[in-house]
Amino acid sequence: MTIKQKTFRWLLFVWLAATIWAAFFYAPLSQGFAGKMGDAPQSSRIVFFHVPLAVASFFAFLVAAAWSGVYLWKRRSIDDHRAVAAIEVGMLYCVLATVTGAVWSKVQWGAYWNWDPRQSSIVLALLYYGAYLSLRGAVEDSEVRARLSAVYAVLGFVVAPFLFFILPRMASFSLHPTPGSAEMDREIGLVVVAAIAGFTALFCWIASLRRRVLDLNAEAG
């Protein structure tokens, strides 16, 4: 392991530890979530994990589409591995974002699931990730597999604006705040941004490890 990788790992560790500490002890409770119960509940602190996970999983999807495009252009298997690693870790993030969201929804609104437009989007995103992985499972030859799954990732990228932006906007109601409209304390915003950066960096690290495993597997045949 190079010095650079070591430093990155330590920085990431310290950053995430500090962010988690800040999420619980530095950030004030959000008054925006003071619901029927009157006071802002402690449960609103999940915003520091739920939102970054969702944002990072969307980022993962963009990264996968970008590497897939690079693969189709250059046809190097390393780019294919980068795309798969991004999808796999992105799917993990997506599941975690869904679960944290459902838990929060139960506490805040009384039901785990209510087909809020963003919940529909994330379910479609999960379906999409699952489809990508089953496509890979169904193709024998590594070259064909890489080519087809790269096309599917790019196609998903073309459809994604409808999934993530247009359909949620068209819905008449949503439990989620539209980005930018919700009033947020400065401290809360700061920690959310720090957590987004931290979780995205964590994603990059896990995905790069996964990519190396894929590289080694392919080399071994």
Binding site: L127, A138, V139, E140, G156
Partner: peptide, 19 residues
Amino acid sequence: QARARGPLFAVLAFPILLP
């Protein structure tokens, strides 16, 4: 170009066609 063509088509097509 894949195996399990019938089920795979539905799996791949739905996320793309649902919007």
